[in-house]
């Protein structure tokens, strides 16, 4: 999730490129071999295994589309896509929007702001598993500091088993995700904000416009491209989401935080159904590619991505 690049390189950039023939291939070969062996090949073999009944040990048995039929009748599997959609919507609020807000708030040359930005960004470099373990303790019903704080200020009734209630568990994961990644979006928007000419704001101020007006009429339109890129990052990152769910809730309570990644791993490795698990990964790949294609079409039209 950290730093997914989205500026798609344009092949036209190579106008005047040196005709290199096979030499060019030699330069590409090491990267290509590694990439093909550990990204493309497993992707291709997934298609075969997705049509087998296989426990990883016995001989794989060809069963056609039965795994896919099962996948579309598997209600928890279907619900996992609902949960990941909610999670992505959550990340748009807690990561992207909050990141944008903080970028505007911390956009100043005054002393101290650079430190605040650095601190705000720091959770991004932490490992997800450390973050997940830490926050599991923070949310703990008996000893967590959230409930302890609530009790300390007299709101004993507000203390909840946060990660054990379907109504709050997913929200908790979203909050931690926000805590972890808002800094990433903050720094992206911050860099873009620095490129907006200051005289635009000064002119607006002279005409009596407030900061809110300036934000809506200057900042947002000028950041449109960055926002679109951030949304793509949040969406693709959301589908890859596994670590926090695994360390904090593992899909519970009552499968209310089950997302495709956690459900797939359970099917494949806890239930020894690698064939079915791989079929689920093929569906996940399909969904992500479809969304990316739709996005790219849209982005091409609004010139976010040159292609």
């Amino acid at each position: 999730m950290t730093g997914g690049a989205v500026k798609i390189s344009s092949s036209t950039g190579a106008t005047g490129a040196i005709r290199a023939g096979a030499t060019g291939l030699i330069f590409v070969a090491p990267a290509l071999v590694l990439y093909a062996a550990f990204v493309l090949w497993p992707l291709a073999s997934s298609v075969y295994y997705s049509m087998t009944d296989w426990d990883g040990i016995s001989q794989a048995r060809w069963i056609g589309f039965a795994n896919f039929e099962r996948a579309f009748a598997d209600k928890i599997h279907l619900a996992s896509y609902l949960h990941v959609t909610l999670y992505i919507l959550g990340t748009l609020v807690f990561e992207v929007s909050f990141g944008l807000f903080m970028a505007v708030l911390l956009n100043s040359d005054r002393p101290g702001f650079a430190l605040l930005r650095a601190l705000f960004f720091s959770p991004v470099v932490l490992s997800m598993s450390a973050a997940g373990v830490l926050w599991t303790f923070v949310f703990d019903y008996r000893t967590g500091i959230i409930n302890a704080s609530l009790k300390a200020i007299g709101l004993t009734d507000w203390a909840q088993p946060w990660l054990s209630q379907p109504t709050t568990a997913l929200l908790c994961v979203m909050l931690v995700s926000g805590w972890k990644f808002a800094g990433l979006y903050m720094i992206l928007f911050f860099a873009a904000l620095r490129r907006i000419p200051r005289h635009l704001y000064e002119a607006a101020r002279l005409e009596g416009a407030g900061p809110v007006w300036s934000f809506c009429n200057i900042t947002l339109p000028l950041l449109k491209q960055n926002i679109l890129v951030a949304v793509l990052l949040a969406v693709t990152g959301g589908f890859a989401g596994f670590d926090l769910f695994f360390t904090m809730t593992n899909g519970q309570p009552y499968n209310s935080t089950e997302v495709p990644a956690t459900w797939i791993m359970k099917q494949a490795f806890d239930n020894d159904q690698l064939g079915y698990g791989i079929a689920l990964t093929v569906i996940l790949t399909g969904v992500v590619c479809l969304i990316s294609l739709i996005y790219l079409r849209y982005a091409e039209r609004s010139h976010v991505v040159e292609y």
């Binding site: 019903y141 088993p161 990660l163 054990s164 209630q165 519970q252 009552y254």
Partner: peptide
């Protein structure tokens, strides 16, 4: 049952028992 039965891990639950809670 403990209120956080659905989300608590198996090992933390054992620790809760050892803590006399």
């Amino acid at each position: 049952f403990n209120k956080d039965i659905a989300g608590l891990g198996a090992d933390p639950a054992m620790s809760t028992f050892f803590q006399g809670a």
